[in-house]
Amino acid sequence: MNTQVFNASAALVSGLLLFASCKKEIIEKQQYGQVVYEVNSTTLYQSNLEKTRLKSSEQFVSILYSDLFNETPSIKYLNDLTELFLSFGDKRLLQQLYLENLLQDPQLTLPSNAEMRSDIPAFVTDTYLRFYQRMPSEYEKYYFTQLISNDTTITPEQVYAAFIQSNEYQYY
């Protein structure tokens, strides 16, 4: 993972942990059932039940790009990709193909296997925040921590691919 991104995420996670222990340290705003933590202005879902609307292809591309590269895509990039998605019927197939291309992009910096395994619970939390904009439940965190711990062949790239191809990532 990009060091800056990782640090920012770590700071967010630390902030959230701090929030759990001492609410006065973090300002919390309730906005239509969502929590806004002012650590980095990320709006978090309290539950995946809040995600009821499908992302359009344009939203999917824009959000995925931002989630992976930590920056917004250019207008031209979005226009190009919007045309590509319009031009093909099976959108999920095209999403998969697009993702597989993004994962080859030399500009993309993913967490290393060592980074992931140095603190698996933190990686799991970070991944949920990064792609789902919510904290994992205790069960989700436990499941992934155990899965990754017990299977040394799982890579951060595979975890990311699973999240991005999941149904929850299709919704907001």
Binding site: N48, L84, L97, Y98, N101, L147, T153, S166
Partner: peptide, 27 residues
Amino acid sequence: YLSAPKSFQPDDVQRIAVMKEFLDANF
């Protein structure tokens, strides 16, 4: 944008599928 995809090996695909199945079951 589409012509150089990462080619996941069958074992990788299986591991991704297992994780996706868990994620989908929780949504």
